[in-house]
Computed example of a mutant assay.
Amino acid sequence: MSTTKAKELLEKYRSGMLSPEEMAILDTWYLRTAAQEDLIIEEAGFEDNLDRVWDRLSVNHSQPVKRKLLSFPRLAAAAILLVLCSFGLYFYLNRTKVDNQIASSDKHFKNDIRPGGNRALLTLGDGSEIVLDDASNGQLAIQSGVRITKTAEGRLLYSVADTHSSGLPTFNTISTPKGGAYQIELPDGTRVWLNAGSSLKFPANFPSSERKVDLQGEAYFEVAKNALKPFKVECNRQEITVLGTHFNVNAYANEKQIKTTLFEGAVRLNAKGAVSRALKPGEEAAFSSGKFLISRTNGEESIAWKKGIFQFEDADIATIMRQLERWYNVEVEYRGNISEDTFRGKISRNVNLSQVLEILEVGGVKFDIEGKKIIVN
Rank of each mutant, 00 (worst) to 15 (best):
K5F: 05
K7P: 03
E21Y: 09
A24F: 01
L26F: 08
L31P: 02
A35H: 09
E37W: 07
D38Q: 13
A44P: 01
E47C: 05
N49M: 13
D51W: 03
Q63D: 13
V65T: 09
R67W: 14
P73V: 09
P73A: 04
A77C: 03
I80T: 15
L81C: 07
C85W: 11
S86Y: 08
Y92G: 05
L93H: 09
I102V: 11
S104R: 12
F109A: 02
F109Q: 03
P115R: 04
P115L: 05
G116H: 05
N118V: 12
L122K: 01
L122A: 04
A135Q: 03
L140V: 03
Q143W: 00
S144T: 03
V146S: 00
R147W: 00
T149V: 13
T151F: 07
P169R: 11
T173R: 02
Y182L: 14
E185H: 08
L186T: 02
V192A: 01
S198D: 09
P203E: 01
S208V: 08
S209H: 15
V213Y: 02
L215N: 09
L215S: 06
C235F: 07
T241S: 14
E255T: 11
K259Q: 14
L262V: 12
A266T: 08
A266P: 02
N270A: 10
A274S: 15
S276H: 06
S276Y: 05
R277W: 05
A278S: 15
P281E: 14
A286W: 01
R296Y: 07
S302P: 06
W305I: 03
K306G: 03
K307E: 14
E313Q: 13
I317G: 07
V330F: 04
V332Y: 06
R335L: 09
R344E: 09
V351S: 06
L353M: 07
L353R: 07
S354M: 10
E358V: 04
I359Q: 11
I374W: 01
I375L: 15
